[in-house]
Nucleic acid binder design. Sequence first.
DNA 1: TTGGTCATGTAATTCGTTACATGATTGA
DNA 2: TCAATCATGTAACGAATTACATGACCAA
Lengths: 170, 170
Amino acid sequence: MSLRHALLGLLSERPASGYDLLKRFETSLANVWPATQSQMYTELSKLADAGMISVSAEGPRGRKEYTLTDEGLAELRHWLTETKPQRNTRSDVLLRVFFLGVLTPEQARGYLAELMELSEQEYESLRRLDESIDWGEDPLSVHGKIALEYGLRFNAMRREWAEWAADQIR
Amino acid sequence: MSLRHALLGLLSERPASGYDLLKRFETSLANVWPATQSQMYTELSKLADAGMISVSAEGPRGRKEYTLTDEGLAELRHWLTETKPQRNTRSDVLLRVFFLGVLTPEQARGYLAELMELSEQEYESLRRLDESIDWGEDPLSVHGKIALEYGLRFNAMRREWAEWAADQIR
DNA sequence: TTGGTCATGTAATTCGTTACATGATTGA
DNA sequence: TCAATCATGTAACGAATTACATGACCAA
């Protein structure tokens, strides 16, 4: 249940409404932790009930601005320092690789070629994102850049692997 | 809903019972698509209802051996060739990186050091797995080896990235 | 005879997705 | 005035996790 920590994390930077958080997800965390609108509002209610965030202001159209409480910050720190990240990530992409034997070699190579292309596209899109952002020295910039570098390296690795893999199949 | 395809894929190699599939998950697919016992039995029932697999033999202790039907194989091929893999994978590891700013630099570097260690351990464990397996020329060997190579490259990439990232934080 | 492993299932709960539903405010 | 955007929520369903429950078979 990391969505709750993602929300706590975003609120640790500054107070925000559900709607604000939704927008910020789209432009930053969507790549590492996609979440839907309804999931976020539900989770915000739960977090408020649990006392980890509180309504600090109300605006037009029923807007509710949430602020991280001390308990919420403590929980965020606890998650970061005391709990281990999950080792197994589910990978749709890799699962398919196991079963490429039911296809013809041409089809199997076709799949790997698609993966190469996908990796290249994602690499390029991250590179453009990198260039479009005005990176500063603030903590958010530093860590955002680190995450982005991961994405670049990951896609470069995957592209090369897919190329190598296609070569293994005949 | 890829568990269903994982099961179809395993059954495409040879007929098996739920219990057999459970064991084979543990030793092969657990890294790319973890699933629990109860999830598997439930999904097998659904697949049988849907006509994608059928009970081909019954053994002692209520053992039911399932065999892939033509419909099941068609569905597996359809999944492999006609549907696109998910682009966004959730990453617990990376989500944390975004919020390392709430920790002290020492703690943040500590997290990245843990990641380096984790990546090294996983790399080594995959390398041992590689050596322990008697690879042949059969389709399963070829594709299993390709998936394993992905794991090796992935962990090598992640280790280097974590090292670089720790350097960025002061 | 008894402990291990083989073998299958159900129930409760949580997490995630899709769809539905509603309405206020603002700027052109 | 009207379209876009701001803004929040609920309902239904499916997928995943944990726990519970049961019992047959086999080898020591």
